[in-house]
Structure formats: C-alpha cells, structure tokens
Amino acid sequence: MQKIPKTPKCYVGGAFVRSESGRVAPLTDYAGNFFANIPRCGAKDLRNAVQAAAKAGAGWAKRTPYNRAQILYRLAEMIESRSAELAAAVSDRGSPDLQSITEVSATISRIVYFAGWADKYEQVLGSVNPVSSPHFNFTLTEPVGIVGVLAPENAPLLGLLTLILPIITSGNSVVALASRSRPYPAILLGEMLATSDLPGGVVNLLTGERKDLLATFATHQHIRAIAAVADHADATALEQGAAESLKRVKILSPQTDWFSPKHDSVWPIRDFTEAKTVWHPIGS
C-alpha cells in the first residue's frame, strides 16, 4: 500500500498555511530524491505572520509567569513523545543518527531549562534601586514585543529553538524563518507547537529563501527586535534596515556552537526585554 506523504506547511497564527506567493521549493532527501515541496514564503507571508504575532503577543505577555513556565514544559513533553520522528528529520537521512538524537535531546533539555526561567528571570534582571530621595524605585522587565528570528543552517532544530526560547520565555512573540537548507525540522516543530498549549501566533514559523525576506524583517516597523544568525553581509543589511525603526538587532555567528552550555543562561532573555523603571513617592 502506498504511503500518504505529508504536505509541509508553515505554521502561522496557530494554523498551517501555504505561502501566499504560491511558490514552493522542492526538498530532496539525503539520497537526492524528491521529498516534499517546502513553501517559499514572501513578504506578504511575513506580514501575515507579524499580524498573528501581534494578535497573540499581548495575551501571551499577560499570562502569569507560572503559566508560561508550564506551557514551555508542556512543549518539551510534546517533543519528547515525537523525538524519534524529529531526530529523523534533523538527520536528513530518513532515520535518526547519533548526531540528530543528540540534537533533539539537547533541544528538549533547553526547553526545560527555559521553562524553569519563566517565573524567575525577573528576580535576576529586575532591581529595587536605592535612590537618595523619598521614593520607592524599582526596575522590572517587559517583553519588547514581536521579535524576528533568522535561524542557522547548522543545528536546524537546536539552533532555531535556542534563539526562540529566551524570546518567548519573557512573553514576546516570534516570527521565525527556518533554516533554508534544512527546513523540515521546523515544519515538524510547528506541528508540535500546535499540539502544545502555546497559544497560536506566539511562535510563527516560515520557510523559504532568506534573500526574499531579509529586507522585510529589517524594515517592518512592528517587529521590535531581531535575533539573527548572519554573516557580515546579512548583518549589515539587517542593521541598515533596522535603523529607521530603531529595532534591537542581535547577531550571532554562523559558526555558533549550539550545544554549548553557555546558551543555558538568563542573559539571552535580557536581550529581548525592555527595562522599565517606576518611581513613587513615600509619604503619608
């Protein structure tokens, strides 16, 4: 009996969508055989994703930290139960290998790690400030808003999630462009996100050619920050484009070692927060 191949779709606003451009790029397997058509998203798809992220973001930021923590942990559970399938996708070989199994388990660990931060990072990043006047003064963090993510080509799953996790832990929403050469793990990730409790639209996953989308990522005014794995040319283009909207841009090297424990840190969370300082007089 014939198998029913899956039609890969992007994950936007909690729904699975093809590109509005109507364009696809064929994906081959390790043996060079046709595997599936991957959507080649255009500027309009990115715009739709930003709209979805905006719609979901406010509610996500308002969730209690404990709730965000549990939802992230639930995501780890969902991935764990399909880890073999995911490892096969990561390996590009149709079956899991040591490298891909390691990547999937590192990814799960990292999700659990950031799930734990959701109700703690504020106590590390915030402060009560001992001002020299009769005022109570404190600084807390707030999510910046919608963050654009440009994923690496190495470690298509771990790299993507290492970028996304600190961003959503603090209540931001994400519009991400998956690895160009190995997009399939992101397609599967979308399916797992859909069955997790993460509200639709908090993470939106696009596939396609970076060159089609880079300028829109950089200039879209509603995107407030970018986390991008980028070479010098891409970094320059992103920072140029980001100037008008003064969005925060964090560039990571394409040679980044995504397995490094340095990524398990509260500081990437800080990169996508705003610090808000509040003053109030003390008196009767």
Binding site: P281, I282, G283, S284
Partner: peptide
C-alpha cells in the same frame, strides 16, 4: 482632594 506629602516637601 488628596495631598501628596513628598510633593509638598
């Protein structure tokens, strides 16, 4: 109406 003490100071 209220008065804020620190503001008065």
């Amino acid at each position: 109406g209220p008065v804020d003490e620190a503001g008065i100071q």
